[in-house]
Write a protein that binds this DNA or RNA. Structure first.
Lengths: 205, 205
DNA sequence: GGCGCCATCATACAAACGTATGAATCACGC
DNA sequence: GCGTGATTCATACGTTTGTATGATGGCGCC
């Protein structure tokens, strides 16, 4: 008896969590409906199929994200500062949706056709980043290098750090839910990204 | 009729490829045996179970790798050079086993217990890296920061770039099988890692 | 009250899954 | 040639899977 409102929303939340932890194939419709306290037929009813639910999950995470990244890239300030703002936006998004790194990275690792919302998000984010990098290269604050490759190197930092959280807990005794720890990780990534991109003065040789 | 030798080796190769592309749950024993031209019962006979085969796959990729990373870390040269050597070792391993990034990353993303060989590899690689980074911090060539976090930032680069190969092909028209392209990617990551780690002289303010 | 629409439910179904198992074949040594 | 162990094979089995579908109840409108 599921009389609580928003069955579809509960399914979406359950699916988000389970697809992130177990992957698409490792998550059954029954596991999703059990977690959402919904009936087995609810997935077909509300979404049409398991795959359509999966696409909706990806979309629910990525769509709001794109605008935030674009806003950070379009903000005021030097290119390196704007890239820092983008990185902080990524961290905020991961805090809002802790499943995001695993979901995105599973999409990247899979031979399955990429869900359109994920593909759009990646393209737009990489474009926002690489254009900001180009601006920095033009004004001399960012080193030379391929802007798209540099963009990917930037995005790799927060995503992989989120994925390796388990190792961090064991290796450093960190508590991922501790705000001070989170701030430390953000600081680390921001410093690393800035160091990786900043143009250095010519070495006197 | 499978009279060809090394049925177990064929299963291992087929499983390696399929686990990387489809993940553990998305790969059926029947798909593996079909690809290996072996009988359905062969997996249970040679490995005991699908899961044991999976562990063997992970082990077959990671075990030789650890020694190579340790050798690169123990080599002669400045810490930054040794870190570059480690990065090149990672790329060589990925060239030898193109499935490696996807396999490793799926392990990281999964809620499933980490296969012991993968856990050992990661610990040892991170240790080799972070000790090299500490040496660089002691001699002043590498900037301050947590060595383990810095190690993870280093490893994220080649892995992520390998995973996003599809996007690179679309965004840059790159052919991943082209040696010149590979060299370009290696150069990019090496430069990025060195830039991210190198200690900068104090800015005159 | 009846109707239509929506949402929930329980169940059925065909297909797929990993494992188990006994039979058959092969390879090797004596 | 025989015996033994290893390997391959075909099949069975219980379980799980995603989808389909008809029944039922709730709600709003006429």
């Amino acid at each position: 008896m599921n009389h609580a409102p928003d069955c579809a929303a509960r399914l979406l939340a359950a699916a988000r969590a389970l697809f992130a932890r177990r992957g698409y194939d490792g998550t059954s419709v029954r596991a999703i409906t059990a977690k959402a306290k919904a009936n087995l037929g609810a997935v077909t009813y509300h979404f049409g199929s398991k795959e359509a639910l999966y696409h909706k999950v990806i979309e629910s995470i990525t769509e709001p994200f794109v605008d935030r990244v674009a806003a950070a890239a379009a903000g005021a300030g030097a290119p390196l500062d704007r890239i820092e703002a983008i990185v902080r936006t990524v961290f905020e998004q991961m805090e809002r949706h802790p499943e995001m790194p695993a979901l995105i990275i599973r999409v990247l690792a899979s031979e399955r056709r990429m869900p359109p919302p994920a593909a759009r998000t990646m393209q737009r984010n990489i474009r926002a980043l690489s254009e900001t990098i180009r601006a920095g290269q033009r004004d001399g604050s960012i080193r030379t290098g391929d802007p798209i490759l540099l963009s990917m190197s930037v995005v790799a930092q927060p995503l992989h750090l989120a994925l390796t959280g388990r190792l961090l807990e064991q290796g450093l005794g960190l508590d991922r839910h501790d705000p001070a720890t989170r701030a430390r990780l953000v600081r680390h990534v921001v410093e690393t990204v800035r160091a990786a991109l900043a143009r250095q003065p010519k070495a006197p040789s």
